[in-house]
Design a binder for these strands. Structure first.
Lengths: 234, 234
DNA sequence: AGAAAACAAGAGCAGTGCTCGCATATTGTT
DNA sequence: AACAATATGCGAGCACTGCTCTTGTTTTCT
């Protein structure tokens, strides 16, 4: 095994130190101001040495993106999977997602704000990015097909179904436990959670919802309840 | 009048040339890569001369932000205000907002993505930013209080009302034409429009909704219809 | 006409991402 | 054990960035 080699061990340690220092800088100055040279200074090594471990600044940001997705999913799962009731689990997903975002605004902006690298979302990110939505899918499966609102179930059957992605990507269960309508509304619900948090974090709630933390939380909870109705959970 | 002075005229012309060149660069390379020096090069002037017209790079970005808000509102208003029927006007707001965003992804990211300057959203931006929501508020006023869904009207009266901003900021009409519940759901609707467009533009619809432009449009229209039901418009 | 203000240009500072050549230290192979 | 291949670290350097300061010129106001 090469893992016992001095070099391999050291490499892993340095790699960890780089991401750790970069994460710390990210929290302080934000994604746009994150500097490879500053990370090198922080670690006491030459700036050129960093490039032995990280191909470019964009690759460093990609690493931070993956870690942010995973950390957020860890946090949300640790709280939401405790509660079994579908409605309460749904609310837990929303509230803990928002909590994590308020505690890590720069990291939230990194993953859900405007993409900082050119445009390519590397494949490494899709797995961690879908962990929380996967929990939401589980709720909808558990709750059954109650989201079959006649108002749009006809529309779904007619034209929406072919526009949706493959449901089997998201679950091993048969599709009869998880209708297209539920999936369509579930995507809406997740979109709204992230959209609302983004609005709050990026300053678009000014003069719309009260500025206090309590007001913001009340309104967000209201949104979760409306969405629960849409999901057929209430 | 100083406007007839050679210098004042020239200053206005240079100012316009700067923002015009900056906008062009914004479309090409995005907000993060926008460079003051490149604008100066494009205009054939020394880089230091730009700072006679623009205090800093952030101020230049703020100018572009205001223009983006205004251009988007111009476009949406020019289409949506043509149709009188509330439901159709609502759909027009959503569809034309998305159209503008797809045609101007970098400018959309500039105003609705992660804030590029430190954190301060200058006061100059709140006016242009609320033009489209104001149209939406007009629809809700015209449609009356049909959004009084009993499911959450009680909740609104109980705890949500004090968390909302002052309605009078948004309209001259009396509040009896425009309930708190309508306002609360209206904010949700606008939040969702921007959130959904952001998801689509920033790559979060991968493997969720089909990749074709037609699929994306079908799903977005579905969202608009669901929201119309929420708004009490359908 | 002369003072005051506005403007343009260049040099320069401190910082950035990234590359290249060179020295050193650790590996794998004869 | 000796040697070659490889991995790592360092410093210099390139081209770029935002921004400031000084110097000289042009327009405006008194």
């Amino acid at each position: 095994m090469t893992t016992t080699g001095i070099r391999a061990q050291n490499r892993a340690a340095v790699m960890e130190a780089i991401t750790e220092s970069a994460t710390r800088q990210l929290l302080e100055v934000g994604p746009t101001q994150l500097s490879v040279r500053a990370v090198a200074r922080d670690l006491g090594m030459a700036s050129s040495a960093i490039y032995r471990y990280v191909r470019s600044r964009d690759e460093l940001l990609t690493i931070l993106i993956v870690r942010a997705y995973d950390d957020m999913a860890d946090y949300v799962e640790s709280k939401a999977l405790r509660v079994a009731d579908p409605v309460r689990r749904w609310r837990a997903i929303g509230l803990t997602s928002r909590e994590w975002a308020l505690d890590n605004p720069q990291r939230f902006a990194l993953i859900y704000g405007s993409p900082v690298p050119g445009y390519a979302a590397p494949e490494d990110t899709v797995g961690p990015a879908t962990r929380i939505p996967a929990v939401l899918v589980g709720i909808l499966q558990q709750a059954g097909t109650h989201a079959e609102n006649p108002a749009f179930s006809a529309r779904v059957a007619r034209s929406l179904r072919p526009a949706l992605g493959d449901l089997r990507t998201w679950s091993d269960l048969s599709t009869q436990d998880f209708s297209d309508a539920s999936f369509a509304v579930g995507v809406m619900a997740w979109t709204h959670i992230i959209g609302s948090i983004s609005f709050e974090l990026f300053g678009h709630r000014h003069n719309v919802v009260g500025d206090s933390a309590a007001d913001r939380r009340v309104y967000f909870t209201f949104e979760l309840d409306v969405l629960a109705g849409l999901l057929g959970l209430s």
